[in-house]
């Protein structure tokens, strides 16, 4: 008589082990995603009867406000991700080996994680306000003859600064672990073979920390893409982020807000997939 377990049991055991994680994703997040998707097509109507229709998508796709929100949020997401990672990399390399004061430097760099985005946005607006610190300093130094209106700048530099300030610590946390895992002997070998600082970064550090880079880019991209609090306080008034547009649309139509919500989810997935594909392509083609 065979003592081997039935072949289905290992699979069931695996599913049972995954259930706690998958359950949260499939039941909770999946249900919300499904309702948003259904509402974008006229179903799950809280104000009346359901009607399956493409009207809400057509209406939103016909609005410049929606299209600009898509473009603006994508730009903000990618710009924030690239700048945050670009600034975090040298810091992660600098902090790779402990030195006197490195713990303090790390703590200071990660301080933004403790400050809520809304609080940061209000503080930032106070600093750049008409009679804020920046204007007072520039006028006192004689650089500007009078204060300038810096708040809600139309190029969204203020939001980008806030995004990088907030997300750099995330990127640093993710990259630090990967960079610290690279052994000194590997870098010493590269140096012995004549590799300069940039060549060591490009040929050794970057390839060995590519997975962390991908994770950092993805996390920052999705966070910045879905920004609401920075945008409503410090963002430009001639463009809305997708999250802002979702709340704005919600006042008039659940279905139109759902279209924006679904767009946000799809763009998050596509952006993350694009980053993954690019990372894989770079690795396979040996560009790095």
């Amino acid at each position: 008589m065979s003592t081997r377990a039935h072949p289905v049991w290992p699979k069931l055991r695996l599913l049972a082990l995954l259930a706690s994680g998958l359950g949260v994703i499939l039941v909770l997040i999946g249900a919300v995603a499904w309702i948003a998707l259904a509402q974008s097509f006229g179903l799950h109507n809280p104000m009346g009867e359901d009607r399956l229709t493409l009207d809400h998508w057509e209406k939103m796709l016909d609005r410049r406000l929606y299209l600009r929100a898509v473009g603006y949020s994508l730009w903000l997401g990618f710009a924030a991700a690239l700048i945050s990672v670009a600034l975090a990399y040298p810091l992660a390399i600098w902090l790779r080996r402990p030195f006197r004061g490195s713990a303090l430097v790390s703590a200071v760099l990660q301080a933004p994680l403790l400050v809520h985005g809304l609080v940061a946005a209000f503080l930032f607006v106070n600093i750049i306000a008409y009679h804020g610190l920046v204007n007072q300093l520039m006028v006192a130094l004689g650089v500007w003859a009078e204060p300038r209106q810096l708040q809600n700048d139309r190029n969204a530099w203020g939001v980008l600064i806030l995004q990088v300030w907030k997300n750099l610590p995330f990127a640093l946390l993710v990259l630090s672990g990967s960079v610290r895992a690279i052994g000194d002997d590997i870098l010493d070998a590269a140096r012995d073979l004549g590799a300069g600082a940039f060549a060591r970064f490009r040929r050794v550090i970057l390839p060995l920390s590519l997975s962390a880079l991908q994770a950092a880019l993805t996390i920052v991209f999705i966070g910045a893409l879905a920004d609401y609090s920075f945008q409503v306080i410090a963002g430009p008034t001639n463009a809305q982020s997708l999250a802002q547009l979702m709340v704005f649309s919600r006042a008039r139509s659940w279905h139109e807000a759902a279209v924006v919500g679904v767009t946000l989810m799809v763009l998050s997935l596509l952006g993350a997939a694009l980053i993954a594909v690019l990372s894989r392509a770079l690795r396979l083609r040996g560009v790095l």
Binding site: A129, Y130, H131, Q149, N152, V232, I233, T237, N238
Partner: peptide, 18 residues
Amino acid sequence: YVITASNADSITRLSDGE
């Protein structure tokens, strides 16, 4: 003219002298 971020933002910037 200036487009402000909200009702509250308008009054704050008026009170601030901007």
